[in-house]
Amino acid sequence: MIECLGYMPVTATSAMEAVDHMRTADIAIAIIDYHMPNCDGLSLIHRLSAIAAAEGRQTRFIMVTGHASMELAVDAMRASAMDFLQKPVDREDLRKALQRANGLHEASVARSLLLDKISSLSSELSHLTRLIDERPVAAPPAGAQPPAAPGTAATQDDERNMVDYIRGLLRTEAKRSKLGGGALFGDPAWNILLDLLLARLEKRAVSVSSACIASGAPTSTALRLIKKLISDDVLYRIQDERDGRRSFLGINANVEKMMLDYLAGQLQR
């Protein structure tokens, strides 16, 4: 997509390769994925920024993530990222982000763009306060305890294949949900379950607000759906020990096993 938009991309398949490119080429814009093997995107932005500053060059950073949240937007702003895109990345969104990056020369302008996104995400979170009845969160029931990490009985290749397969399904679901203006063909419950399963395999925590975003549905609809899935013992909620205002979601063990069995069968076809 970058080439089709008239740019000349330099690709890196690892953080070390990105560092090498930054040292040897005049990189004007760097698009960085938040989730990478052995390195997170924010750490890489800090490292690349230091290299560019030491050489007197200006590089503008765009963060790419599959899980946009207010926390990530704030962290991205602190790391000097001027924008972030949510996966699967839409070509038009990419074009606009690159145009903004090309036209920005003052840090204050870039900062205002991210503040706008933070404000938007903050509005989403305010819906959480008004629309969901947060009862005291108890420990998950015995049947809902997180199971042993997926993949303990499988090879790392099997886990990697499963992760890639789920990512592909999420991309397909995102494209399908756009048909008919996004109101006819989406499946928010399946999107939430896939996203939570992917997070489980990648050993990531998913907050309620992130699950709402992953559903692809309006916040109020996603919240009602999450409450229903919790009441039906499909999902469970765990309080964030560091922030009592936030809670995370997980899939109950029996549902997770059924999903893994089903997806494994589909993957082998």
Rank of each mutant, 00 (worst) to 15 (best):
E71H: 15
E71G: 13
I31E: 04
M70L: 14
D40H: 13
D33I: 08
A73G: 08
E55V: 02
A18L: 11
T24L: 05
E55Q: 15
R23P: 00
L72E: 09
E17L: 04
T65C: 06
D20W: 14
R23T: 05
D83Q: 12
S80R: 15
Q86L: 09
M82L: 14
A54I: 01
M77R: 12
V64K: 00
D40W: 05
I27K: 00
P37W: 03
D75G: 08
A30W: 00
S80H: 14
I27F: 03
F61S: 00
M22C: 11
D75P: 01
M22Q: 15
I31Q: 05
H21S: 09
H35T: 08
I62E: 07
I27W: 01
M63K: 12
L44C: 11
A25W: 00
I51V: 13
P37Q: 00
A53V: 10
R57Y: 02
Q86R: 09
L48N: 03
H67L: 12
I32W: 06
V64E: 01
M70K: 13
Q86G: 12
L44V: 10
S69P: 03
G66C: 11
G41E: 07
R78S: 09
D33S: 09
F61P: 01
I62V: 13
T24E: 14
A76S: 08
E55G: 10
A28N: 06
A73V: 07
D40E: 05
R47L: 15
E71K: 13
F61R: 01
A68W: 10
A79G: 04
